[in-house]
Nucleic acid binder design. Structure first.
Length: 752
RNA sequence: GGCCGCUUAGCUCAGUUGGCUAGAGCGUCUGAUUUACAUUCAGUAGGUCGGGGGUUCAAAUCCCUCAGCGGCCACCA
């Protein structure tokens, strides 16, 4: 054995051994199953992925316990996220998504993803992950598309899907709408304008939306304005004199501003609700490209921010602004991806009614059919479920699963289409007009976008239902397909034996997006929860506890650390002293500390081995010497007994910790015992006996040591298997042994 | 505003259902070592366990309260 453990020299070979012996092993033992959260197909490994280690720990621990443990991997097409990356790529080449028709763009992204995919699996292998790589599922595989289609079709039949003109958060920069969950809120200081509205003055941060106002509202209890309620007032505006109705609603806070609010149902979520309640006209004045439309007269065509400046200038000029509060601090809803202001806008959307579906989810979680570790997340997810509204599932993104709805263009002449003609020129308009000049197949070929009125008739089909049809251009929210992850990853017969799966490891930030939806889909389709336990990984932060971000320049590439210190060191650093659902500070110092631990493990083995070799030489030379040292002194017996007692305690505590998902504690226990008790204390005490060739002491130390290797193996698989092979022969893995080496065997040795 | 969590050594954090002298990693200081391992070992300093009150034979741990910090959710025209 070398004096140092050198991971770079043996990791590859050891991984090959696992691939040959462990991953291919057929077993009839009790099943244990984990579904891997599918990383983005085009992603490469970042530090956060390191926490997949937890899943690998479970898999290895279960294999050691004799389970038929399988970890099913996969890759996600990650809809919008991937398209976003791809578009940045396009920008570098001086292009934009609008230069392509839908199909071509899709194919280009597909190629892009294919070129980058698979990389992360090679990186996972560097970390030692033992997943069933040959069973990888991609969320655009045919069988996934089929399942997603069937679920959607069934939901339509059973009335869980509806289309509606609904106010959604639309990012004019990213070109798609988002669910409420995909928005960020930012505190910001903006001017608050006090605008004259006939007899009133009202405060607003968005004067440019005044063209879309269809009412003014006051609080019903507000005495100041009581006499106006129900009346129609007249006021001067930028487009001349206009009339507007005054309504009363509790929503208005009389203490804010002047107690009068302008209601713009088309461009504010709250106003939209009030509009519905009071049957107000919805007057859309901002289009999906983020520009004001023809209803705004001279402002048409201006982008929102510029229009606001212009409107304010003109209002000032007309004396319609009473004052401006420049220091008004408020929360703004922004795109979680690009941080641009989101434009609340009315877009026809596909929705899932969640009211009934979520009931069974709440019930199952309340009944602990799924157990969260740590358990405080049970409350959190229940809180999320409580406020969960209907789920808008359409995204105006190309990369994804296209919604399988087809519109008959004869029945729906008002469908609005955007397409590239033969000369790649962008054309748009209502389909009935377009068809006067173009054939439908021309439109279909160059199609970029289609907006069907909310009451359009449609047919659900995987392929075209006829030659008069155009398919919906919206795609499913990526969580609509990844939410069905548990329904597409196992083989048909495995749903009998491996479902619900045993564990789902994930980060807490996708609990509402992913975990709750997976439970929902599984309960809907399979009538059973998809997994029994959910373990929340730690968020991997830098040494100082700051979140890693490219902009901060504190991003650590885990593969660099593996190259420098070995996979075991990284794995242990991620687990050591970390808390489930918390944060783990991954500094290089910590990894070095764990690298030192791997070396310690190695050298304990080396020491035991060296002494064995020496004493076996002794044996040949002098038979009588061996007899002389055979009897152990009382002192040595006592040390041995203490060692065994302590080891047994550690082993028990370890088992308990592992069963309770306290991985960090389990690792800490063995770390402390093996290093600071076994090596620093017991070996030092028994050193002379070993050197004297005391075979009993030698074999005892070997047994305890090998036992520890098993406990440590799930966390640090490479070094433990490297030493194991020294003792048990080349090509033997710990994983081929069982963890239940009871200490009774050891006690027997001592007594004899 | 609602919910959840955190506050323990210089730093980052453990501390299982209350129970030995409150721990680890990194850092500090002193020393050892022709060594299984300098990626080592022995030792040292450093804590009124955020403040206050309560329950108990016993509280870092349970309850109340105050203060500070963080996360999530909702919301502000």
């Amino acid at each position: 054995m070398d004096s140092k453990f050198q991971p770079a020299l043996c990791e590859k070979e050891i991984y090959k051994l696992w691939q040959r012996d462990v991953l291919t092993k057929k077993s009839s033992e009790k099943p244990f199953t984990i579904l891997m959260p599918p990383p983005n197909a085009n992603a490469s490994l970042h530090a956060g992925h390191g926490m997949y280690t937890v899943d690998d720990i479970m898999i290895r621990w279960k294999i050691l316990q004799g389970y038929d443990a399988k970890w099913i991997p996969g890759l996600d097409h990650a809809g919008f996220e991937t398209q976003y990356v791809f578009e940045k790529h396009l920008v570098k080449q001086g292009k934009s998504r609008m230069d392509f028709d839908r199909q071509t763009l899709y194919q280009n992204i597909f190629k892009f993803v294919k070129n980058n995919s698979g990389l992360i699996y090679e990186q996972f292998k560097r970390l030692g992950f033992l997943a069933q790589w040959d069973r990888s599922v991609f969320t655009l595989d045919n069988h996934v598309l089929k399942t997603v289609f069937q679920t959607f079709e069934r939901m339509i039949k059973e009335g869980y899907v509806y289309r509606s003109d609904y106010i959604v958060n639309y990012c004019t920069h990213c070109g798609t709408s988002f669910s409420e969950l995909e928005t960020d809120h930012m505190e910001r200081i903006d001017p608050l304008y006090y605008i004259k509205y006939g007899p009133f003055v009202l405060a607003t941060v968005r004067p440019e939306t005044k063209f879309g106002d269809t009412a003014l509202a006051v609080n019903p209890k507000d005495k100041r304005y009581k006499k106006w309620v129900g009346k129609v007032i007249e006021a001067d505006g930028l487009l001349g004199r206009f009339k507007i109705k005054v309504i009363a609603d509790d929503y208005v806070d009389p203490k804010f501003g002047t107690g009068v609010v302008k209601i713009t149902p088309a461009h504010d979520p709250n106003d939209f609700l009030i509009g519905k309640k009071h049957n107000l006209e919805i007057k859309q004045i901002i289009d999906m490209n983020g520009r004001l439309n023809q209803l705004t007269g001279p402002y048409a065509g201006l982008k929102v921010k510029i229009a606001r400046q212009k409107v304010v200038e003109d209002l000032k000029a007309k004396g319609l602004i009473e004052k401006i509060d420049e220091q008004y601090s408020h929360a703004v809803t922004v795109c979680y991806k690009c941080s641009y202001d989101l434009e609340p806008i009315i877009v026809p959307n596909w929705f899932i009614k969640v009211e009934d579906l979520k009931k069974s989810v709440i019930e199952a979680i309340k009944k602990d059919e799924i157990i969260f570790h740590p358990k405080r997340f049970k409350k959190q997810i229940l809180q999320w479920l409580k406020v969960m509204h209907d789920w808008p599932i359409s995204r105006q993104v190309i990369w994804g699963i296209r919604i399988p709805a087809w519109y008959n263009v004869q029945e729906n002449p008002d469908i609005f289409v955007v397409f590239l003609d033969e000369t790649k020129k962008q054309m748009q308009g209502k389909i009935k007009e377009i068809l006067k000049t173009y054939s439908l197949s021309e439109v279909a070929l160059g199609l970029q976008k289609l907006v069907a009125p909310k009451n359009a008739s449609y047919t659900i089909s995987q392929t075209t239902p006829g030659d008069q049809y155009l398919q919906e251009t919206d795609t499913f929210d990526t969580w609509f397909s990844s939410g069905q992850w548990s329904l597409v990853t196992l083989k048909e017969e495995e749903y009998q034996t491996r479902y619900p799966t045993d564990l789902l490891g994930t980060l807490s930030d996708i609990l509402p997006f992913w975990v709750s939806r997976m439970v929902m889909f599984s309960l809907y389709i399979k009538k059973i929860v998809p997994f029994k336990h959910v373990f929340l990984w730690s968020m991997v932060a830098d040494a100082k506890g700051k979140k890693m971000a490219k902009s901060k320049g504190n991003v650590i590439n885990p593969i660099d650390l593996v190259n420098k210190y070995g996979a075991d060191a990284l794995r242990a650093a991620l687990l050591f002293g970390s808390t489930a659902g918390g944060k783990v500070n991954l500094g290089e110092d910590k990894v070095i500390g764990m690298r030192n631990f791997t070396n310690k493990i190695w050298n304990i083995g080396r020491f035991i081995q060296i002494n064995q070799v020496q004493s076996s030489k002794c044996k040949v030379q002098s038979h009588s010497e061996k007899i002389k040292v055979k009897k152990n002194s009382e002192k040595i017996k006592k040390i041995i007994n203490n060692l065994l007692k302590e080891y047994k305690e550690v082993e028990e505590k370890y088992q308990r910790a592992m069963e309770g998902y306290n991985f960090s504690r389990a690792l800490g226990l063995v770390h402390r015992f093996l290093w600071h008790r076994f090596a620093d204390y017991y070996i030092e005490k028994l050193k002379d006996a070993m050197r004297d060739g005391n075979i009993e002491v030698q074999s005892l130390l070997e047994e305890v040591y090998l036992g520890n290797l098993k406990l440590l193996h799930p966390f640090m698989p490479f070094v433990t298997d490297a030493v194991w092979q020294v003792f048990k022969g080349k090509g033997k893995s710990i994983l081929s042994s069982k963890i239940k080496v009871q200490s009774s065997k050891l006690q027997f040795q001592v007594k004899s």
